[in-house]
Design a protein around this nucleic acid. Structure first.
Lengths: 141, 141
DNA sequence: GTATATTAATTGACGGATCAATAATTGACC
DNA sequence: GGTCAATTATTGATCCGTCAATTAATATAC
């Protein structure tokens, strides 16, 4: 039999947590985490190159392309090529997109508040600190 | 502009963390987290019904079926119907599967140790506790 | 005892992510 | 100036997950 040291329990719980949380997030907010990140990034940077956007949200180029295509169909974003360098395409929110994203963000904030219910200020910063350190460890691998 | 309260940073980091960790996990260990969970569960319960296995690892029936099919092709598991109730199928590891899984688990443990490098005993239990509480909050949604 | 409901497993459709290959454009070097 | 390299974006193949519908077997209710 395998023993389950605390280390493994942490990993297990982390994994379980995400697995259960993501679908609930999408139901509550009406949008996927990734897509909301894209929209938020667009909101904050007026007009941004697709490549820069991809680096910010940190998902695959291909996925970004497909997200943007769908968002374009829904009239939430527009795209145009950079006239000085046709390899780049600029992406920006439409007015319609801008009004919609605010609602999404509020939903998200509500959702996260629920998840962190009962956490003291000290606990929050401690948790954030630990997650950051884990992140750094992962980066080294 | 949106503000990023600490709450959101925590959620952000959690999400980022998983997104970056999972692919690295698969590269390092040579197997996906989900599939390893299935194998481990099989290892611990000798022979188990597919339904019970699904509940344990907590992924969709369909996904379990497909994992098991592939594992069967690789000669790592065998399946047989319950003669007393033909709806159920029992799953168990082959000898080949048993020997392989040990190596996977060691890889996993190593990986997790790396990720939690620099964490004191106290921090680990504190982190585990917080994750558990978040889990409970999520369950309520 | 037969019709209905429940349960397990499978399959298909679909969404979202990755990787690999390709096309188009630009930059650099001889 | 023409070839080669680098960069961006797109597309196709594949994997993994969910949901919904289907099939097969069993249990239940009348």
């Amino acid at each position: 039999m395998f023993k389950y040291p605390e280390e493994e329990l942490i990993a297990q719980r982390l994994f379980e947590l995400i697995k259960q949380t993501m679908p609930k997030f999408e139901r509550c907010t009406g949008i996927s985490q990734s897509r909301l990140e894209i929209l938020r990034e667009l909101f904050e940077s007026e007009e941004i190159t697709q490549r820069a956007l991809q680096k910010k949200v940190n998902i695959d180029h291909a996925a970004v392309t497909r997200h943007l295509k769908q968002l374009e169909e829904k009239r939430m974003v527009t795209r145009r090529k950079n006239p000085e360098d046709n390899r780049f395409t600029y992406v920006s929110l439409t007015e319609e997109g801008k009004t919609k994203i605010a609602a999404y963000c509020e939903e998200k904030q509500l959702f996260i508040s629920n998840i962190l219910n009962g956490f003291s200020e000290h606990e929050r910063s401690s948790l954030l600190d630990m997650l950051t350190r884990i992140q750094e460890n992962v980066d080294k691998i």
